[in-house]
């Protein structure tokens, strides 16, 4: 196992956030989420509920209409060196090899020379289990390996906040479980704050300190589940434990409630409440 230093995490605060795409149905109305430094937060929700939109707001690609997103008390920009982002599709640069992809961020943001960069990139590729694949172009790697490169590419900059948008959704169940364990090991070692988006209930529980369920837009946080599963976690023990099943049952119920909500009704109700607020 390659040696890396603990980077620690930053506090993330989302307060009173309002957002809508060009005057359409609002996606968030007064969203509040606080994430502790070093916390592993899973955000669960059906597709279309605004998970990717939330990460776009957190990373500064989108600006909130009202409210704020603050990392360690300061507004966030995509270029922020403390921010790491793993995309749903790996978004690797297809013209660069695995190690060059990992090196990319170092090349943009540091004054390290070519050799130091290479060396560090190799170390992080090794960390995600890709020793020997340094010179492969992304097309020659499987989906799971591409996501590993993508993870190494984000981690090599030692971010204090790691945003992950359904990074393993496209992987088969077995590869996904392996990746879950690897992610937990890395997080354990590096200690950054993680916001992990998923629509997979098992994954959300297995990884996190806390699970948020998002409702249909503009639902916001439908429920918060404090995850007391002991760490370190391991596949067979954790996934078969009583508590795991209990959480799973609760979340399945929540998700089916959320999914059966009719977004139209909600929107109308939101409008009604806005109007009555304005009048009152």
């Amino acid at each position: 196992m390659a040696k890396v230093e603990r980077v620690g995490g930053d506090n993330l605060a989302i307060s009173d956030l309002y957002f809508s795409y060009n005057d359409e149905l609002p996606i968030f109305q007064g969203l509040n989420i606080d994430v502790r430094p070093g916390e592993f937060l899973s955000v669960l929700g059906p597709s279309g509920c605004g998970k990717t939109t939330l990460l776009n707001l957190l990373s500064g690609f989108y600006r909130p209409d009202v409210g704020s997103v603050r990392l360690r008390g300061e507004p966030i920009q995509p270029e922020d060196p403390h921010l790491g982002y793993v995309f749903q599709a790996s978004n690797l640069f297809p013209w660069l090899s695995a190690v060059e992809n990992v090196e990319f961020g170092l090349r943009m943001t540091t004054r390290m020379n070519q050799e130091e960069r290479r060396e560090k990139a190799r170390r992080f590729l090794q960390l995600v289990g890709l020793k020997g694949f340094e010179d492969y172009l992304p097309t020659r790697l499987s989906g799971g390996m591409q996501q590993r490169v993508s993870l190494a590419r984000a981690l090599v900059l030692e971010p204090h906040l790691l945003l992950m948008d359904e990074p393993f959704a496209a992987l088969d169940a077995i590869t996904r479980e392996t990746m879950n364990d690897e992610l937990l090991n890395l997080w354990d070692e590096l200690g950054q704050t993680v916001m992990f988006i998923t629509h997979d209930i098992d994954e959300a529980i297995y990884l996190s300190d806390r699970v948020l369920v998002l409702g249909r837009p503009p639902g916001g946080v439908f429920r918060e589940l404090k995850n007391e599963l002991p760490r370190p976690r391991s596949g067979p023990t954790t996934r078969t434990s009583e508590l795991f099943w209990q959480y799973k049952k609760e979340l399945i119920t929540d998700i089916s409630t959320v999914t059966s909500q009719n977004p139209r009704d909600e929107a109308e109700m939101a409008e009604v409440s806005l109007i009555s607020k304005a009048e009152g």
Binding site: S59, F61, E79, P81, L83, N91, F93, F104, M108, A154
Partner: peptide
């Protein structure tokens, strides 16, 4: 895709 990825990696 690529430009978004590059921006979060600090490219200006």
């Amino acid at each position: 895709s690529e430009v978004r990825a590059a921006r979060v990696l600090g490219a200006r």
